[in-house]
C-alpha cells in the first residue's frame, strides 16, 4: 500500500521560505499571489494491507518523527 503524507506549517507559524518564494514570484511578474506557504511531501511504500491499521501506524510515525506538531500539521493520503 502506498501512502502520501503532507506536512504543512500550522497557521501563525512564520514561513521564511514561503515568503522568499512569494517575493521571487512577484519579481517574475506573477501578480495576485496573496500568500505562499511551503510544506513537505513524504511518500511511503508500506507492506500493510489493512487501511485502518496503516493509517493508525502512519499517524504514530507523524507524531514521533515525520512532523513536529508544535509547528506542523500533517495529512495522510492512502493511495
Amino acid at each position: 500500500m502506498k501512502a502520501r503524507v503532507h506536512i504543512t506549517l500550522r497557521n501563525g507559524v512564520l514561513d521564511p521560505q514561503g515568503k522568499a518564494i512569494h517575493n521571487a514570484l512577484g519579481a517574475l511578474g506573477f501578480d495576485g499571489v496573496r500568500e505562499v506557504r511551503q510544506g513537505k511531501v513524504i511518500d511511503l511504500d508500506l507492506a500493510d494491507t489493512d487501511e485502518t491499521g496503516a493509517r493508525a501506524r502512519i499517524e504514530r510515525m507523524c507524531e514521533k518523527l515525520l512532523a513536529n506538531t508544535t509547528i506542523e500539521n500533517y495529512a495522510i493520503e492512502l493511495c
Binding site: 507559524v13 521564511p16 522568499a20 508544535t70 509547528i71
Partner: peptide
Amino acid sequence: IETGLLPGALLRNAGL
C-alpha cells in the same frame, strides 16, 4: 527540542 525536553521549535532563520 525534538526530544520534547525543551518547549517550542527552531525554525529557519528569518533572513534565510
